[in-house]
Design a protein around this nucleic acid. Sequence first.
DNA 1: CTCCTATCCTGCGAGC
DNA 2: TGCTCGCAGGATAGGA
Length: 270
Amino acid sequence: MPELPEVEVVRRGLEKILAEKPKIQKIELLRPDLRDEMPAREIHKFEGQVISSVERRAKYILFCTSRGALLSHLGMTGTWRVAAKGDERPHDHIYISFAKGLRLAYRDPRRFGIFDVVYDREQHKRLLHLGPEPLEEAFSGASLWRSLRQKEVALKVALMDQKIVVGVGNIYASEALFAAQIKPQLIASKLSLAKAERLVQEVKRILHLSIEKGGSSISDFAQATGESGYFQNNFLVYDRVGQKCANCQQRIRSFMLGGRNTFWCSKCQK
DNA sequence: CTCCTATCCTGCGAGC
DNA sequence: TGCTCGCAGGATAGGA
């Protein structure tokens, strides 16, 4: 489900919920594994710790304490919510309990998510090889262009490669390429510097706009606070096969690229 | 190395 | 209506 905007919106929701820096009373793992086995022994060491901040790196959420952090990745279907006593649902896999009956629940039907501990952010294997944050200045047209020079894959595939830039998934890759009027199947190394500048500008604009709209609520995505997002109403190509392009009379088309459905306008995107 | 494919898992909607 | 099939926001192991 979640690409950078959705993860950032969830992070902000959790930050608000945990604003008073509560102490973790109890962590319950309702099963041993999500995508991977969870390090139960290490996770339970966080009981008694205070969550001092909720941070994000790429599509990962970090519940930070003075002794390290709990790392959460939402996979395709992961959600965090406040679950009062009695509010248990199928596919709830983790409960984190605090004082005053506050309890966070992690629910993830497909279990593609990750829950792990991080002591050294520079060393953790999931964080080690990540590319730049798209909303930071280090991610520029020039930097993207440089990192694509040797890439002989389709531009959309490269844009979704977390070593090139983090946080951009299947929806925002299609949307950004449409906005920049570049065809998804263009070989990445063939992208001109000028087009790279344009693409970076559109990636940043779209991600910012989506965060502002609360992310995209397709299927059952919701913020940690339970509200839904509205950016799905701004999709111009994603999941719009057969509908008219916003710029021309052409119908939006789709095809598989790197195993992922890819949406584009063959007239606008060159 | 780089690139591509299959795979993990459940739910849901399309089509018969 | 009820069934089967294919596909869904991600990431990675393993083969070419």
